[in-house]
Amino acid sequence: MKLSFILKDSNYKLSQFNQEEINDLENSIFLKQTAKSSNYYINSNEIYFFADINDLIEI
């Protein structure tokens, strides 16, 4: 999952991060699936972010 895709339509821009930070964040993205939903998470040091998979993928 690309960080640019997650940040689209948000107030955040890739220019806020340097390339090393972008790579680290993209490498930290994982998908957690449960019986009711699927969510992407970013776990990087103390940064925790999740989004509903329906917000990230066109259905």
Rank of each mutant, 00 (worst) to 15 (best):
M1D: 06
M1Q: 05
M1V: 07
K2T: 12
K2V: 00
K2P: 10
L3H: 04
L3V: 05
L3S: 02
S4Y: 05
S4W: 00
S4P: 01
F5R: 11
F5S: 14
I6P: 01
I6H: 06
I6V: 13
L7D: 01
D9Q: 10
S10E: 06
S10M: 07
S10A: 06
N11W: 05
Y12T: 06
Y12R: 06
Y12Q: 09
Y12S: 05
Y12L: 11
Y12F: 14
Y12I: 12
K13M: 04
K13E: 12
K13N: 11
K13V: 01
K13L: 05
K13T: 11
L14W: 04
S15V: 03
Q16L: 15
Q16N: 10
Q16C: 05
Q16T: 03
F17A: 02
N18Q: 06
Q19G: 01
E20P: 02
E20S: 15
E21L: 04
E21Y: 00
E21W: 00
E21I: 01
E21R: 04
E21Q: 15
I22G: 02
I22E: 05
I22C: 03
D24F: 06
L25P: 02
L25Q: 01
L25N: 03
L25T: 03
E26T: 04
E26M: 05
N27P: 05
N27W: 04
N27I: 02
N27H: 13
N27K: 15
I29Q: 06
I29G: 03
F30H: 13
F30Q: 08
F30V: 06
L31N: 08
K32Q: 11
K32D: 07
Q33R: 11
Q33P: 00
Q33N: 12
Q33G: 06
T34K: 09
T34G: 12
T34A: 08
A35L: 12
A35V: 13
A35D: 13
K36Q: 11
K36A: 13
S37R: 09
S37C: 08
S38H: 07
N39M: 12
Y40L: 14
I42D: 01
I42F: 03
I42N: 01
N43R: 14
N43C: 09
N43W: 07
N43Q: 15
N43E: 15
S44H: 15
S44G: 03
N45I: 07
N45T: 06
E46S: 13
E46H: 11
E46G: 08
E46Q: 13
I47Q: 07
I47W: 08
Y48A: 04
Y48Q: 08
Y48H: 10
Y48D: 07
Y48R: 11
F49W: 10
F49Y: 09
F49R: 02
F49G: 00
F50N: 13
F50L: 10
A51I: 10
D52G: 03
D52R: 08
D52E: 12
D52S: 11
D52F: 05
I53C: 08
I53M: 09
I53G: 02
D55M: 10
L56D: 03
L56Y: 09
L56F: 15
L56N: 01
L56V: 15
I57A: 10
I57Q: 11
I57N: 09
I57H: 08
E58A: 07
E58W: 08
I59W: 12
I59M: 11
I59Q: 13
I59A: 12
